[in-house]
Design a protein around this nucleic acid. Sequence first.
DNA 1: AGGCGATCCTGAGGGC
DNA 2: TGCCCTCAGGATCGCC
Length: 292
Amino acid sequence: MPELPEVESLRRSLEPHIRGGVVVRAQLLRADFCTPSHDGNTTPADLLEGATIAGTLRHGKQLAIIAQDGRVMCVHLGMSGQVLVRGTDDPHPTHTHAAWELREPSGRVVRLLFRDPRRFGGLWTFPTLDALRQTLWKELGPDALTASPEHFEPVADSRRAIKAVLLDQSVLAGVGNIYADEALHRAGVRPAAAACRLGQPDYVKLAVSVREVLKAAVKAGGSTLRDYVNADGEAGWATINHAVYGRQGLPCVRCGATLRHGTIGQRTTVWCPVCQPLPNRSRNRQVSKQRT
DNA sequence: AGGCGATCCTGAGGGC
DNA sequence: TGCCCTCAGGATCGCC
């Protein structure tokens, strides 16, 4: 499920538990759930065993946990992943694929669990943050919280639907299906509109909307649809603020028109036929890439 | 180039 | 109650 706001909420809820804490023991319960940067099997050392945690770093939907000695573990939640802080005597929930025993800065010992029923998520380990940035994160675009009109320049000539562009992590990292629909509605842009048909004002609105929608969701603690919870098991409240996602057939919160839905970029898409008109300009050159 | 379907999985929810 | 079907927040691959 998780998009940028959910991962950021997780990061913030995790920090007080792990920053300055020591990984006493690391266990991979499903070998194929972790991809180490070296050949061979994942070792406890890859999973930061013995390390003191220096902090966390998020880029898009991915979360890096960084050790003081430089080792890095990158977490991707996929669609159903959760990182949970539990007591050492609590039984593991179903589909727990990795577990860490952690001595928090306070001295309390807890267990950190990564569960992911659908297993679309995973762990990747690296000897350094640079190694992560040069491989796994290399193809990611700028973090969506920093979205600006220039970030759309590489796709300004593209005939792809603008929603497909928003979902493309190499253009902007962190936007998923929910917030793509929400940002497009806020910006008044039709999801199916070809990127090349949008004008500079559309891209300005879109960049602002992406940032605002994500910031509001972060503030609300993320969206809880089915199973998202932060590390402390708390749900988020951004769902109540959704203007279009999951509201097909209901009235638009802005104009009252019935929200329509369809499939764009192979994902369920909801939009307002009135607030999000198709662009009427036939061609836009203003943000086009310079031809070289 | 990019749309599309299939694929990796499990679980929830609706219909019957 | 239970079975079967559809659908789901992500991302990649190959085909056309």
